[in-house]
């Protein structure tokens, strides 16, 4: 695994620790953490904050038969079968993606977006949306600004924009102010997991007209 230089913000990690993010953002956070030990450790700290708040927080009295009922529940056995989340070495997809996109790249059903760029929308509930992007080496992603927050996590290859280079595991977090023109590095296609809580706003006319149809 190469060096990861672009990490999750405190805000996103708190949101994930607290369970306050939309599902699409949770997916990107969980996928990044699968690749990034530093953010996994930071998440641990933010979850500890949650544990301390739980411990010192307000208590609500439980029903008088709550313990008896819980022991009955326990006797019924676990509800969900234990998850086995072993991954094949070298898989481009960390395990959190498997439930959404299939177990590896070959399972993805891409749709063309023009210029060799392809995308696959992933089903998540809530206001934000998630998708996979396939950008051939050397190709521009159409110039776009953002109305909400957009997170882009590189799974394969790399892209560059005005700010820096983003390789596998790196995450770019863009907000309203940001205008950027990412270009995939020459060579292997760049594959990204992206999530946004608002539709992208493209700056040239054609993509803007196409946007509602392409469901970007």
């Amino acid at each position: 695994m190469g060096q990861i230089n672009h990490h999750l913000s405190d805000q996103l990690l708190i949101g994930y620790a607290a369970g306050a993010l939309p599902e699409a953002f949770n997916l990107v956070v969980a996928t990044h953490i699968s690749l990034c030990d530093e953010c996994r450790a930071r998440l641990g700290s933010f979850e500890t904050v949650g544990g301390c708040l739980l411990d010192s927080g307000p208590a609500a009295s439980v029903a008088s038969d709550a313990l008896v009922n819980t022991l009955k529940l326990i006797a019924e056995g676990p509800k969900e079968p234990p998850k086995v989340s072993r991954n094949r070495a070298g898989n481009v997809f960390p395990t959190p993606l498997h439930d959404y996109a299939g177990s590896d790249l070959s399972a993805v059903r891409w749709r063309p977006m023009g210029g060799g760029v392809r995308q696959a929308r992933l089903a998540t509930s809530g206001a934000a949306t998630a998708r996979l992007l396939y950008i051939p080496g050397g190709t521009h992603i159409p110039d776009h600004g953002h109305r909400g927050t957009e997170m882009t996590l590189v799974l394969q290859g790399a892209f560059r924009d005005e700010t820096d280079r983003f390789g596998r595991g790196d995450i770019e977090i863009a907000d309203q102010q940001m205008q950027h023109t990412p270009v995939a590095e020459p060579g292997a296609a760049c594959i990204c997991l992206a999530a946004t809580d608002a539709p992208l706003k493209f700056n040239s006319l054609i993509p803007r007209i196409a946007q509602p149809f392409l469901r970007i």
């Binding site: 369970g19 599902e23 949770n26 969980a30 953490i33 699968s34 544990g51 989340s85």
Partner: peptide, 21 residues
């Protein structure tokens, strides 16, 4: 806390919760 949080996402928000590898 993490178990209670996941239960909240599941029962109150009716969402799946992707967990890190």
């Amino acid at each position: 806390f993490t178990i209670a949080r996941n239960k909240r996402i599941d029962a109150l928000r009716k969402q799946r919760r992707p967990e890190p590898e």
